[in-house]
Nucleic acid binder design. Sequence first.
DNA 1: ACAGATTATGTTAACGCTAACGGCCTTTGG
DNA 2: CCAAAGGCCGTTAGCGTTAACATAATCTGT
Lengths: 343, 343
Amino acid sequence: MTRPPVDHRRPLTLRDVSEASGVSEMTVSRVLRNRGDVSDATREKVLLASKSLGYVPNKIAGALASQRVNLVAVIIPSLSNLVFPEVLGGISEELEDTGLQPVVGVTNYSPEKEESVLYEMLSWRPSGVILAGLEHTPAARAMMENAGIPIVEIMDVDGQGVDSVVGISHRRAGLHMAEAIVAAGYRRIGFLGTKMPEDHRARKRLEGFQEGLALAGLTLEDREFYQGGSALLKGREMTETILTRSPDLDFLYYSNDMIGAGGLLWCLEKGIDVPGKLGLAGFNGVDLLDGLPRRLATMDACRRAIGKRAAQIIAGRSHSGLIGGEVIELEPTLQPGDTIRKS
Amino acid sequence: MTRPPVDHRRPLTLRDVSEASGVSEMTVSRVLRNRGDVSDATREKVLLASKSLGYVPNKIAGALASQRVNLVAVIIPSLSNLVFPEVLGGISEELEDTGLQPVVGVTNYSPEKEESVLYEMLSWRPSGVILAGLEHTPAARAMMENAGIPIVEIMDVDGQGVDSVVGISHRRAGLHMAEAIVAAGYRRIGFLGTKMPEDHRARKRLEGFQEGLALAGLTLEDREFYQGGSALLKGREMTETILTRSPDLDFLYYSNDMIGAGGLLWCLEKGIDVPGKLGLAGFNGVDLLDGLPRRLATMDACRRAIGKRAAQIIAGRSHSGLIGGEVIELEPTLQPGDTIRKS
DNA sequence: ACAGATTATGTTAACGCTAACGGCCTTTGG
DNA sequence: CCAAAGGCCGTTAGCGTTAACATAATCTGT
């Protein structure tokens, strides 16, 4: 078995490439960045030398010298939520041919973690920041205001942003869902959701939902919360719990599609007449669940679009140099599915 | 209402903090990094000045000067696969208190994209690289060999790694599943999976599976492949297709749990006797699916553990004390669930 | 009280790259 | 044939930080 020679070299630099190809470091730099005028012959020579040495440019030094960093900080609460990877997909796609690169940080819904992740990321002087939500620690807010780079807060427009904002109104999403449910003739309505006090968007949806019920002279009959665990399973369990406690409910509003799907499966197993005797709705429009026996009523949260618009703002401004707090509100659309009576 | 002064400042540097607190830049640097001896009085002064100015250290300059970067490059095929976010979770957890920070890159199962993502990441001179799979372009392999940093290839041990390797043998996972299925008395077996030629792990599982069948004198009766779309839905559709074409199959082996779940739902709807007349099994052990009407037989791929072990190697906390070229093979465990007959 | 250790701070020189500018050489047009 | 323009490439001076060393102030034990 041949063993590769031990790696005694110091790391390669522009100087190594420049010496190997007989031109100045500056010229090598120009070739490698496709910037400025270089003759084809020289370019060829440099590229060859660079490749055969296996040179990889040092962006740390490059960024320091040019005061330019092609990174965009993306800060989200979780990767296991399905929603955020989709937003990320939109961001990546939009950034694809801009030379910008997303760098992801995860906060686990903790404002303190968010603050420290933000601090860490800002210390790499990214070209922009995209982060979820409008609620941050005062320190985090201050950092963003002082960073001197475009900031886009995404997902939610119900509140005051630091700079630009792209999202939907969760309050109005909840309200519209309530209207649709009431219009379909349901009257005894229960809510099932997460216990997380830091999930402001779920909270706002619930508030809007209750507001919508109030407009029809209704209130929530019952509610049930959960924390952690498999969402599908939790949905199942909570549904059983709430229906045992309040058997006369005729509608269940879930704070996300996953627990909604669990509830749906449980109801179908029990032979409950959905949507005749009991209606169900979730939130998010995750197409992961397309294969369920019935399509759950839900509301599309425009996740991919949010990512794309946010990325556009970062990319657009990094080129144009515009300054300004753009606010983009997208419209979530109701997908009635098969779990709401046709009114 | 006090208005903050307009933002005419150039970006803050150590010098600003040093002037504001009346000590040298070096001392400020020491305070901010908790390194070297500084008197409590000075520390206090510096911290105060730094905080009130809203100073955020410039890690670009820091990294250049110290030749140290606290980033770990993590390169995975996809974020929507459920599996990889879990691996990531393991990595993050393990890196939590090491001062190291994971940076994620996504390849969409494309070797070329992997190569370019790797190049991009190496240009930031990370402390280590964790990436999925053993199959890479020659250029990517060369880059890793020359990088002079620890490399950990994860998920798969069936092949030759560049440096360290942490994973399971997908070949043996497939083989064991075949043995279990044969032992339970199933004989007419079909396979359903992805069409992706770049999903080497799925391919190796299938090869191992066929090998296992061959040992019992069996071969696959039929197979069905898909590409893209909602996995749950595809599982449903493919199951219908394959059972229509080959109605006498008595077992379906799915290449992942998601399509397996779709198949399970379809079978239950059709009133097919599972596992009596038809057995089902998937792969991965995703607990997302815990709430299904029946637990799908599956094999746990040790995702979180893989992430943790890989991170340990990078962080230099590996138990082995080896300096490189470690190979850790984890053992996937069969979870029989409710969709295989008890033998 | 004084050498020697210890603690606290400052000074200098990189780290590897790129912006800015300058100079040479070729081309072009009148 | 010469001036102006442009293509090509090199030189210089940082970018903001930290390693390494130097220096000043304080403490120890005898």
